[in-house]
Amino acid sequence: MIGQVLIIVVIGLVAAGLVAPGEALMWWRSGRLDERLIHWPSLEEAFGRPGEESGDPIPADLPAEQDHYLVYLSGIGISSPAELPVIEIPMVERLTDRIGDTRVIWQIYPYSAANTALTQGRRLSRLWQVLARWKFEKTRLRWMAFLINLRNSFQIFVSSDRRYGPVFNLAIAEQIAAALIRNGYRPEHRHPVTLLGWSGGAQIAAGTAWYLAALGMPVRVMSMAGIMSSDPGLDRACQIWHLRGDHDKVQSLGALFSAGRWPIFRGSSWNRARREGRLRVIRIGPLKHAGKRGYFSCEPILPDSRQPCETTADAIVGVLVEAGLARDNARPDNPD
């Protein structure tokens, strides 16, 4: 019985893996051959929606331009660009309030090349809708909502694969460029952009950095407990910060399974960035990847009398302030 279940699980995983690159490759095939590979979108394109859907109306006034843009790329629990996982919302709100001179952008679904929510406009969207609902319901089948995480984690593999990654990361980079334009970014001013990737989002941040840098913006990558490979995109990031908790074993998976992060491969993008001083690994305290004492949790209070989520926010803001990219609105000695 256990053997049969195991076989079914393996077949299911293989099938899921085989279809995983499909969305990115179909997105690429649908484009025109003579199109330029990456370009700043026009306002119409930036406010457009994927597929046949009509785009959002272009507002008369775009948000005011900021000196720095922080693009938050969510973890594998996300299922739509319009909605962050519940656990991540307070953190993003906290960062939005706290980081001065910066616009925080989060409306991106980093696991879909077409920026299509799992719950809309897909053949299996009804299934994903049910699974997304079960995440918050007390049902015996709640565990099946894990399939959303599984589906998204396969997209991390797609992003880090040398064959599919260039296509997938290009698609997400275009989405990020569109989101920046929607938020008042002026390409000619080349204000700095920091990609903050939480967990699997860090791999997407690393992958897209290649193309975003090609657009002329100074890109920085901040991995918050990121599970990431030694992506070539790191070569084009001005700075890379990898924030990690002392008790976080999940983020170590990236270092374990990505050969490019092993010290013996000195020429890899990760090791080169480290040698050049562009990459810093920052330990932020006794935090775990998820659950109690996780990066987003409010309990237990840590020995330094801060909440775990406060520690995380302090670390993110601290790094940005130290790099001269932003102000900390919560600091009493703030010059403004």
Partner: peptide, 16 residues
């Protein structure tokens, strides 16, 4: 073309 060609075609600093 391969994925590498796609990446190489995204030269640094292009703007429009």
């Amino acid at each position: 073309w391969t994925g590498r060609d796609l990446m190489e075609s995204a030269a640094m600093g292009q703007t429009r």
